[in-house]
Structures are given as structure tokens and as C-alpha cells.
Design a protein around this nucleic acid. Structure first.
Lengths: 151, 151
DNA sequence: ATCAATCGTTGACATTTTCAATGATCCGGC
DNA sequence: GCCGGATCATTGAAAATGTCAACGATTGAT
């Protein structure tokens, strides 16, 4: 079963544009997003806030600016995301270690707990999104995406 | 050179989340989009309108509903996109062959002309976005994305 | 000490997404 | 043939997102 639910392969998939990497990325990303967001709703999270929470749990002590760059978001959007997570007691802002302008986003104990469960849910979603791929193909896809981004 | 311009590999790329397919898709898609849209601006197009124009040139005679489904967009967004392209004389709406409710989107001669040039530009952009991949890796990526979507 | 640059934050603005409602048209059962 | 439910394109409103400029606080270089 492919990620396109029960829908058959659309007629337009024959078009040459179906080889456009841009379109393929957009489609798979869109399909995966609805699956992810649906699963994360249970925890009051969305893809974005989950990513922030996950990075806050990573031990890398990310600053808000790093989060913005890494998630390809405007710094002001990070403010909103962290505001929300902080209001719910899942993360806390801490002053930067060497630069008092920057703020480090750290998960609270509650945040860690929620993250653990949400992570399991996301892992299932990912498997669902890539259900049409064999395990080694899914691994290869991950690797190729990483290489395209960071060499 | 990776698609992340001259920026180095960010510190956060070490985080486990950097293996999330959802995030990788979002990032590469975001990076590719800015490149594509920048290149398409020369023709007064964006990624979306380019895709519509390209499908209108495909000979598959897509209906607006098919475009919506294929591009993962709401039907109302297709209306706006086709309105724009039609106002600029690049596509025309034609009555459905067997169903008078549906409208087929066809490229005009002007539309075909613009598409040919835009296509060349997009091909260059794609090469730029996947610059860090060897040619066979880029092919493999395309194939994996297609398979994940349509089996 | 000063000046430019950077960080998080705020607020304004544009664009995009999402959804419900509508008229025209199709199709199945009667 | 006609009716009722479904589908198509379209409109418009509401919500979510994206973009951008400005600000105070802080840093680092001169």
C-alpha cells in the first residue's frame, strides 16, 4: 500500500512532470505531514512543535536562532512555537552559555515524557508514509536526502 | 557544494531528528523551492503555476480536479492558478470531453513557448538542488520518491 | 568609548490553507 | 422521462503561515 491511501495511481502520474524532484518532494512531504499531524494531535503537537521539542530533548542545547536555521523557519516563528511549548510546561528558555542575547531551549521532565511517546507515534507514521518502500530502500532514501542537504 | 549554499553543515544536523524523513523532506523541499521560485520569477511564474502550465502542456488534458489531486492542492487554489495563467494568455479552459461540469486546462501556443524556457530553467535548478548527489544518486532519489508515492 | 552586527521579540502585512456554500451538470433508480 | 444524491468549478470567509521591518539588549571589533 502506497502513501496515497486507497487512491489508485493518478492518471497524471504518467506526465513527465512526475519526475520533477521538486514536485515529488512536495507531494511526499504533504502526504507525510497530514499523517504526522494527525498522530501528533493526540499530544497537542504539530510537526513544527514536535521538531522543536525533539531538538530541545537532544542534549545539543540549541539556541532559538539555530532552531530557526535548522528548521528553515523565520526566527519569529520559533518565538511562537517556543512560547506555546513553554506555556504548556514542555520546554524552558535558558540564557545562552557565553552570549546573554541568545536563549537555549531545553525540555522539561514533562517535555521529555511527551517527546518519548510522540516519537513512537512519529516512527509509526514514517513507516506508514514509506510503506511502499522496502526497509533498505527507506534507509537509502534517508541517506540520499541527508547527502543532498549536507553533502 | 550542497544545496545549503555556502553555509556549513549546521551543528544540529548531528541530532537524531536529522534522520526524520519528514524533516528531511521539508528541508530539501524548502531549499529547492526558493531556488525554483527565484528562477521562475523571470517568467512571471512560481512553482505552483509552473506545475499547472507544465501539466497543461503534457497532452494529458487534465481537468482542474485532477490538477488539484495531483498537486495536493484544494480545488479552489487551482481556480486561482488557472485564472492567473489564463489572464496572461498561457492556458485556456476547455469544456470536458464527456462531462460538461469539468474543465480541461490546455496550454496556448504562448504557454508552450514559456513552458519550454521555464523547463530549461527548472532543470538547472534541480541540478543545483541535487548538486551534492552523483547523477546515479539523483536518479535513485527520484525513483525512491516515485515508489513511495505510487508504489 | 563608540559603532556595527547579532539575538530574541513584537507587530504589521501578504500569502496560503482550509472549509462551507452555491449553481450547473451527471448518473442511478424508478 | 424524472428525481435525488453526488460531483464539478467557483466564490468567499476564516484561520494558519510566511515575510519583513523595527526595537532594546548585548556582543565584539576598532
Amino acid at each position: 500500500m502506497s502513501v496515497q491511501d486507497e487512491a489508485a495511481v493518478p492518471r497524471l502520474a504518467e506526465a513527465a512532470i512526475a519526475d520533477d524532484v521538486g514536485l515529488l518532494l512536495a507531494k511526499l512531504h504533504a502526504a507525510g505531514s497530514v499523517v504526522n499531524n494527525k498522530a501528533l494531535a493526540e499530544f497537542g503537537l504539530r510537526e513544527r512543535s514536535y521538531s522543536v521539542l525533539r531538538l530541545a530533548c537532544s542534549g545539543l542545547e540549541p539556541t532559538q536562532r539555530e532552531l530557526a536555521e535548522f528548521l528553515s523557519l523565520d526566527p519569529s516563528q520559533i518565538v511562537a512555537l517556543v512560547d506555546d511549548l513553554e506555556a504548556r510546561g514542555l520546554v524552558a528558555r535558558e540564557q545562552g552559555r557565553t552570549d546573554r542575547r541568545q536563549k537555549i531551549v531545553l525540555a522539561t521532565a514533562d517535555g521529555e515524557r511527551v517527546h518519548r511517546e510522540a516519537y513512537r507515534a512519529i516512527a509509526e507514521c514514517e513507516a506508514k508514509t514509506l510503506a511502499a518502500l522496502a526497509p533498505d530502500e527507506a534507509t537509502a532514501l534517508r541517506m540520499l536526502l541527508r547527502k543532498a542537504l549536507w553533502g
